[in-house]
Amino acid sequence: MKSRLSLATVVALVALLLSSSQAQEQDTQCKTTAKADIVLLLDGSWSIGRMNFKTIRSFIARLVRVFDIGPDRVQIGLVQYSDDPRTEWHLNAHPSKASLLEAIANLPYKGGSTMTGWALRYICNNNLNPSVGMREDSRKIGVLITDGKSQDEVYFKSKNLRDRGIKLYAIGIGSYDEYELKSIASDPDESHMYLVSNFQFLLDIVDNVTINLCNSIKASGW
Rank of each mutant, 00 (worst) to 15 (best):
residue 1 M to W: 11
residue 2 K to P: 15
residue 2 K to V: 14
residue 3 S to Q: 12
residue 4 R to C: 09
residue 9 T to N: 06
residue 12 A to W: 04
residue 12 A to Q: 07
residue 13 L to P: 00
residue 13 L to N: 03
residue 16 L to R: 01
residue 17 L to I: 08
residue 18 L to W: 10
residue 18 L to F: 13
residue 19 S to N: 06
residue 22 Q to N: 09
residue 24 Q to N: 12
residue 24 Q to C: 07
residue 25 E to M: 09
residue 25 E to A: 15
residue 26 Q to S: 10
residue 26 Q to F: 14
residue 27 D to W: 08
residue 27 D to N: 11
residue 28 T to C: 05
residue 32 T to Y: 01
residue 33 T to V: 09
residue 34 A to F: 05
residue 34 A to D: 05
residue 37 D to M: 04
residue 38 I to S: 03
residue 39 V to P: 02
residue 40 L to D: 02
residue 40 L to V: 15
residue 41 L to E: 08
residue 41 L to F: 05
residue 42 L to P: 11
residue 43 D to W: 03
residue 44 G to M: 01
residue 51 M to I: 00
residue 51 M to N: 13
residue 54 K to S: 15
residue 59 F to N: 13
residue 62 R to H: 02
residue 65 R to D: 09
residue 69 I to V: 14
residue 70 G to W: 09
residue 75 Q to K: 11
residue 77 G to H: 11
residue 77 G to D: 10
residue 80 Q to S: 11
residue 80 Q to Y: 03
residue 80 Q to E: 13
residue 80 Q to W: 03
residue 81 Y to M: 11
residue 81 Y to N: 00
residue 82 S to H: 02
residue 83 D to H: 11
residue 84 D to W: 11
residue 87 T to V: 14
residue 89 W to H: 10
residue 90 H to F: 12
residue 91 L to I: 06
residue 92 N to Q: 14
residue 92 N to V: 07
residue 93 A to D: 13
residue 95 P to E: 12
residue 98 A to S: 15
residue 103 A to Y: 05
residue 105 A to R: 14
residue 105 A to P: 01
residue 106 N to T: 03
residue 107 L to H: 01
residue 108 P to H: 10
residue 109 Y to L: 01
residue 110 K to Y: 04
residue 111 G to M: 06
residue 113 S to L: 14
residue 117 G to A: 06
residue 123 I to V: 13
residue 125 N to S: 13
residue 126 N to T: 04
residue 126 N to A: 07
residue 126 N to S: 11
residue 127 N to G: 05
residue 128 L to N: 07
residue 131 S to A: 14
residue 132 V to L: 08
residue 132 V to G: 05
residue 133 G to D: 09
residue 135 R to L: 09
residue 136 E to S: 13
residue 136 E to D: 13
residue 138 S to R: 00
residue 138 S to W: 02
residue 138 S to V: 02
residue 140 K to W: 04
residue 140 K to V: 03
residue 140 K to I: 02
residue 140 K to R: 13
residue 142 G to Q: 06
residue 144 L to H: 00
residue 146 T to I: 04
residue 147 D to I: 00
residue 151 Q to H: 11
residue 152 D to W: 07
residue 155 Y to N: 11
residue 155 Y to F: 10
residue 157 K to N: 12
residue 158 S to A: 15
residue 163 D to N: 15
residue 164 R to Y: 06
residue 165 G to S: 11
residue 166 I to E: 10
residue 167 K to F: 09
residue 169 Y to M: 06
residue 176 Y to T: 05
residue 177 D to Y: 04
residue 178 E to G: 08
residue 178 E to S: 09
residue 180 E to I: 04
residue 180 E to R: 06
residue 180 E to T: 04
residue 181 L to D: 01
residue 183 S to Y: 01
residue 183 S to K: 13
residue 185 A to T: 03
residue 185 A to C: 11
residue 186 S to H: 06
residue 190 E to T: 15
residue 192 H to E: 00
residue 194 Y to V: 00
residue 195 L to P: 00
residue 198 N to T: 12
residue 199 F to R: 02
residue 200 Q to S: 15
residue 203 L to G: 07
residue 205 I to S: 08
residue 205 I to R: 08
residue 206 V to A: 10
residue 206 V to E: 14
residue 207 D to Q: 12
residue 208 N to S: 13
residue 209 V to I: 12
residue 210 T to R: 14
residue 212 N to V: 02
residue 215 N to C: 00
residue 215 N to H: 11
residue 219 A to H: 04
residue 219 A to S: 15
residue 219 A to Y: 07
residue 220 S to R: 13
residue 221 G to E: 02
